[in-house]
Design a protein around this nucleic acid. Sequence first.
DNA 1: TTGAAAGCGCTAACAC
DNA 2: GTGTTAGCGCTTTCAA
Lengths: 338, 338
Amino acid sequence: MSVTIKDIAKEANVSTTTVSRVLNNKPDVSDKTKKKVLEVINKLGYNPNGIARGLVLQKTYTIGLIIPDICNPFFPEVARGIQDKARQLGYSVIFYNTDNNKQREKEAIDLLKSKQVDGIILSLSMSNKEELDKLEEENFPVVQIDRKIPGSIFPTVTIDNILSAYNATKYLIELGHKYLAHITGNLGTKTGQDRLEGFKQALKEFNLDYKDEYILEGDYSKESGYKQMKTLLTQKKRPTAVFAANDLMAIGAYEAIFDYGLKIPEDISIIGHDDIDIASIIRPGLTTMTQPKYKLGQIAAEMLIKRIEGLESDNQQEVVLNTELIVRDSTGGWNDEE
Amino acid sequence: MSVTIKDIAKEANVSTTTVSRVLNNKPDVSDKTKKKVLEVINKLGYNPNGIARGLVLQKTYTIGLIIPDICNPFFPEVARGIQDKARQLGYSVIFYNTDNNKQREKEAIDLLKSKQVDGIILSLSMSNKEELDKLEEENFPVVQIDRKIPGSIFPTVTIDNILSAYNATKYLIELGHKYLAHITGNLGTKTGQDRLEGFKQALKEFNLDYKDEYILEGDYSKESGYKQMKTLLTQKKRPTAVFAANDLMAIGAYEAIFDYGLKIPEDISIIGHDDIDIASIIRPGLTTMTQPKYKLGQIAAEMLIKRIEGLESDNQQEVVLNTELIVRDSTGGWNDEE
DNA sequence: TTGAAAGCGCTAACAC
DNA sequence: GTGTTAGCGCTTTCAA
């Protein structure tokens, strides 16, 4: 049906080998035949069959991407970074959503392997070490993103949540705040734990008191931010600044504060985390920490492809990216004399 | 390196043909040999080579997805719908972002074809009819999403923007509003034109005056919404309700209204379009029209795969999906007596 | 019920 | 500089 290398060989009166040679820019072809072959290729509208090529080369120039959910606002930019870099390096990307379901993760890996992808970038559920181990055994090229499964030896690109929370908190402290509260994320998640850890570290570093009643667990939802902020506001001495583990909870906190007739940042400073779209749109603009999502994707893709092409051997490589503080209007200086 | 059908054939003392037969659940294999083969497969940890299979079958069980940008909030859900449905039907998806760049679109199509995908779901820039024509000529399975290139014969899944704008406007009218304004999208886009058209149709249908000064062109940005709302507010008779062609502009309009010390919806009702995340988070909650993005993806994938598998012949098929009104707090009843 | 052989479209030794 | 041949891993006639 489709025009093959054979067709163009026949038409050009050369062997398929010769055609293959010009196709792949190999030397040892006279300019004359090369020109002729090229002409025929153009005339017949030839498009090489990557599948056939993949079979003999044992290489598909395709990588797999396994993520929990492309609809999670963290991932589109990551995926975009991966695809852009992959494309630039000559690779395509097949993607799967798993919803952190172990069965689906296994299915995705098996499928990707049967499609003979050259490598896989993945973000697996923390408990799924088995699959990673299998991949490891086969020495399959893999790069983990966003989360690193403990004990796995594959290279990793992650965000430094501890440092990020530390920096967010430090910013608040440097603004003059002494009574700092933290609405944590779900403490069942590594991210939630890390951000809490960073918060604590900053307090310690600046010799500020650690108050249990100033640390309340949320679940990343706006509602939980609202609820926990209310709790914070009813305490005898209310905090003058709060770090919410994500922007959604920060926005929930906004509402609780407005409900109390207080002002941001005059009465209370709020800092969030993630820099979702809403952060720049809401009033006052939410000061937050932004994650280098696109860059994370790019780096992961580059690492994987280097590994695939044997340009990189260090399997233990761990890239930890820093977030960046975005100062908007929800945070302000504080002076306890006033 | 990897274990092949040959390895398991040897180990099981049968021919590769027999192995292939049990792999594909073909009849004419004795239960005994079948069992034995299955055992060996398990023992050796065999994973079929889809590339080799694809070569002989001329079928890869892979589809392509070409979109402008996965970071555009419209697409993640669409992509998710496509991937979920594809997976359910046994297909994988390779995706490309093109930024509406014609060169990149061509590149993506060529690459996908060389990867021998079984079909493509795409959203091309409106001017890129050539590529579509080529695909058409080859009778390649394609489904267009979001936008239909005029004159193309491929099946399409789109959102009915005219009807959607009509319904948004109608809702405002039924609330009692008689002075309706519209901040349009970029009128260089089909979407912008269609939403304006729907607005006009509703006015006409309800015998309301069409006022040029009540129709101001924006560019989908929050800033343009702000600016045009200001213009609206400075007119002698200001509108009591405005339909913004997207939520971002609606939110810009919010700010202009607040700047004037006016209240939503008491002084002015606002309705947006798209139901982005922010719509439910901002106060007052933004009434808007939501697009069935996930469903659009699912339908597109199902249409494409049916076509690939020859279960569907009607190439002219056009599915037009309706949006749904989400009533929040930015719209209220109006009575001109008051 | 089973196997031998051909071939999918391509690349790579190897020979000329 | 060019062609012959074999083979990548699989499915599918066709014959036994």
